[in-house]
């Protein structure tokens, strides 16, 4: 995969939000939601982005599709400087990167029939002549496993899982190159989650899409991503191939995160690292390594210097002075 030119190159991306408080809304500081993030997306890959709330993963996803304007850094999309695009040029390029949102209830216009919802992007981007749009809508619905007569109904007639299928169909309508799926299954029941994960994987492969799959659920990400980046307080702390990351996590945060995931097996109750404390406020991140106050293996150096992403022995990169030192307590293996 690395031989081909990346579809997307993200460099030192920064997105800050001002924090205002009080009656006069005085500026009290800022949150660096994304704090210097760099990575490439290769054509056809699924890039998993995981982290807890406040890690910046959603903000990063929104910057990638220009729903938010980053404050610094760059995004090259297929060789085009995405952040320099404005007005009509940006609107034209938007066809090529689409987003699937978390909330299948809030992200669909309740007063718009599904058919119109799907044909509107076709008209806006002038992709399909008017007399062929209905057929294209029917094909889109079939692609996501819905019957063509869904086109004449309103969103409320559908269950959560079906609505998420509609959201995916809408994102695919413009035949994008990049799909950013932000927590696409976390609002769904477990029995339906698997359907949507499988659908996204299948569509990606069939259509040759590049996908960013954002989720807090590591097990879901393991089932769809080719590469995975772990975020903490606005930064990527570890990035590796899926198998490398899940089999031999190197950053102590990744190790702890993996061990905190409850496993549906009664034998594994004891094997857990319970991290102390909460995610620090992104308004005043800790000095040095942002993870050091919660890190089980933190040393004095960690409070003073900030580690940068460096290659690990396992083939990925991790931002830690002591990668691989925290052993994973039976995070995997142990199959019964």
């Amino acid at each position: 995969m690395s031989a081909t030119r990346p579809l997307v190159e993200v460099r030192d991306l920064v997105k800050r939000f001002p924090v205002r408080r009080g009656l006069l809304q005085r500026l009290k500081g800022e949150v660096r939601a994304v704090d210097g993030v760099s990575f490439d997306l290769h054509p056809g890959e699924c890039f998993g982005l995981v982290g807890e709330s406040g890690s910046g993963k959603t903000t990063l996803g929104r910057c990638l599709v220009r729903l938010l304007d980053p404050d610094a850094g760059g995004i090259l999309f297929d060789g085009i400087d995405l952040l320099a695009l404005k007005g009509e040029a940006l609107r034209r390029e938007r066809r090529r990167f689409q987003m699937v949102f978390q909330d299948p209830y809030g992200s669909l216009n309740p007063r718009m029939r599904v058919g119109r919802m799907l044909s509107e992007p076709l008209a806006v981007h002038d992709l399909v002549p008017p007399d062929e749009r209905q057929a294209r809508v029917a094909r889109l619905l079939e692609q996501v496993g819905l019957s063509p007569d869904a086109a004449s109904r309103f969103p409320h007639a559908f269950s959560g899982g079906q609505r998420q299928r509609i959201g995916i169909a809408r994102a695919l309508a413009t035949e994008p190159d990049l799909l950013v799926a932000d927590e696409p299954v976390s609002a769904l029941d477990v029995s339906v989650q698997a359907q949507i994960v499988n659908l996204l994987a299948r569509l990606q492969d069939e259509l040759g899409l590049t996908q960013v799959f954002i989720a807090h659920d590591l097990a879901v990400v393991e089932h769809i991503a080719h590469r995975v980046a772990v975020m903490y307080l606005g930064r990527i702390v570890e990035l590796a191939d899926r198998d490398t990351l899940f089999a031999s996590p190197q950053h102590p945060y990744t190790v702890s995160l993996l061990s905190a995931v409850p496993v549906p097996e009664v034998e594994r109750r004891q094997d857990r690292i319970v991290l102390p404390g909460d995610l620090p406020s992104p308004m005043s991140p800790p000095s040095g390594c942002p993870f050091h106050p919660r890190c089980p293996i933190a040393r004095p150096r960690c409070a003073q210097e900030r580690p940068v992403l460096e290659p690990t022995q396992k083939g990925g990169v991790a931002a830690c002075f002591y990668p691989g030192e925290l052993a994973a307590p039976a995070v995997r293996g142990l199959e019964l």
């Binding site: 699924c46 269950s159 959560g160 899982g161 079906q162 029941d189 477990v190 029995s191 339906v192 989650q193 698997a194 359907q195 994960v197 499988n198 996204l200 994987a201 299948r202 492969d205 659920d217 590591l218 097990a219 879901v220 393991e222 089932h223 769809i224 080719h226 899940f246 089999a247 993996l258 995931v261 496993v263 549906p264 995070v331 995997r332 293996g333 199959e335």
Partner: peptide, 20 residues
Amino acid sequence: AQPRLGAHVERGHLEAIPGT
């Protein structure tokens, strides 16, 4: 249907319960 860490399931082949 519950995705498990380290289950070595082929990508996109989670077992789903059909329907809703």
